[in-house]
Design a binder for these strands. Structure first.
Lengths: 243, 243
DNA sequence: CGAAATCTTGATGCTCATCAAAAGTGGTGG
DNA sequence: CCACCACTTTTGATGAGCATCAAGATTTCG
């Protein structure tokens, strides 16, 4: 029953026993979701926050003209509804893409964590910065790259994130998304996503089999996606001492 | 010599004298930049963080094909290079749009702040969430809205941010941007920005005079921009007690 | 096994990019 | 103070990229 929070933070720094215990205490309950279940709806009041324990979810917004923009995919260890730390109502809808388990946690518990574990709250600030940079990378992709580059970037991102929670995964993986969903993530139509996938396939960059994708030529794929690897070059040496 | 950090945070909560003193101590030096000066270049090593004291800056990335995506505009009280809390090198270039003053601060000072003032570090997490939501709003705009909507959204955002630091400003303001820059912020060409501005003007939504813009019909402009007002509905009641 | 969802491909059209050129603006130095 | 130059704005003409519409093929799921 170790919290996925401890797991996620533990990848970045060595947690003290004390810190680990506090994190585990933070997320003790668990809520199960079946595929397609809505965890939060846009404008819903935000009572609690969540951490993904198992499974995959996504969040999106619906614009006034009915179109959908998928904002992020949520994997084990990701925080959901952190916006609840500021806003009373949810800015986005969150639904389960697979069977899921999420651990609810109280805002007051986050406050208590900040008081008891300054290093962890500093680390949360740092993690926010990583997510901010990931978002700006996507922003640049949507604003300034072609449909093919965006689809390639989506595949690379999904593979990397799935790999980060399952080291088995390498070139071959099953995103578990429809082409419509890929389109809503990349700002394209499902039809055009299909054509771009075909093109990537015809160029020998990827292979497809049912829902399974294989990244055949990862360097070339990264180039067409204008992908930037941010995993190297982390520096958390400035964090205060643990408690 | 009051730090703009204290000013910014003070808009969200009532700071204790203690907190205010710590924030002022954080940013004591000041560095002046003239118009067009580069504060940080992409891939530069990130030594220190900055807070904008006076003036306006912007940050952007250049993609391999040479195109530019402007990521954010930085106003008084905004933090620069917070990515330095995680990455060794800057993910973005930051340049001054006007004469500017920025206050450098050490990463270690942020760590110290987390230890001494848990409420402030929790507040920094909350502010990160506000910026995350602002980024996802822009993401949805780039992914799913028309050129006209994006230009309208940019004008509204610039007006709101300039107004938040100068209450004098209402409908009329000078963004101080070229149409090329507006295009690089919205993922469009300068030529098309020009056409969209003309269209907004012909429809009576805005007026222009040199570099000055006037938002003539703000409700209609907000509708064409699919703008969401997030200023209402803040809730920071969960923050821990001040020190 | 049947119905609904998803994938695939073709045909057509709109939005925005590109190319080009003229008019306006501001800054600089003689 | 004016002339000049670089930059910006504006508008037109043309074209590319992606959306839309449509229909058949395949997969998924109850």
């Amino acid at each position: 029953m170790a919290s996925c929070l401890a797991e996620r933070l533990g990848e970045l720094i060595d947690l003290s026993a004390n810190e680990r215990a506090s994190l585990d205490r933070l997320a003790q309950r668990e809520r199960l979701l079946r595929r397609g279940a809505v965890l939060l709806r846009e404008r819903d009041p935000l009572g609690e926050l969540f951490v993904v324990q198992r499974g995959t979810l996504m969040s999106y917004v619906i614009l006034p003209d009915g179109s959908r923009q998928i904002l992020r995919f949520l994997f084990r260890g990701d925080a959901i509804a952190m916006a609840g730390l500021v806003y009373r109502s949810s800015p986005e809808t969150v639904i389960a893409l697979t069977e899921c388990a999420v651990a609810p946690l109280e805002r007051a518990a986050v406050a208590a964590l900040a008081v008891e574990h300054p290093r962890l709250s500093a680390l949360l600030i740092a993690i926010d910065q990583m997510e901010r940079v990931a978002l700006t990378d996507r922003l640049a992709g949507l604003g300034r790259t072609s449909a093919k580059a965006r689809v390639a970037a989506l595949l690379i991102e999904l593979r990397n994130r799935m790999r980060s929670i399952d080291r088995q995964i390498d070139g071959t993986f099953s995103p578990g998304l429809t082409q419509e969903e890929m389109g809503d993530a990349t700002g394209l139509t499902a039809v055009h996503v299909n054509r771009m996938l075909r093109q990537l396939q015809d160029e020998g960059l990827i292979a497809r089999d049912g829902g399974r994708f294989t990244l055949l030529d990862q360097p070339a794929l990264a180039r067409t996606a204008y992908h930037i690897d941010r995993t190297a070059g982390l520096d958390l040496s400035w964090l205060p001492a643990p408690r």
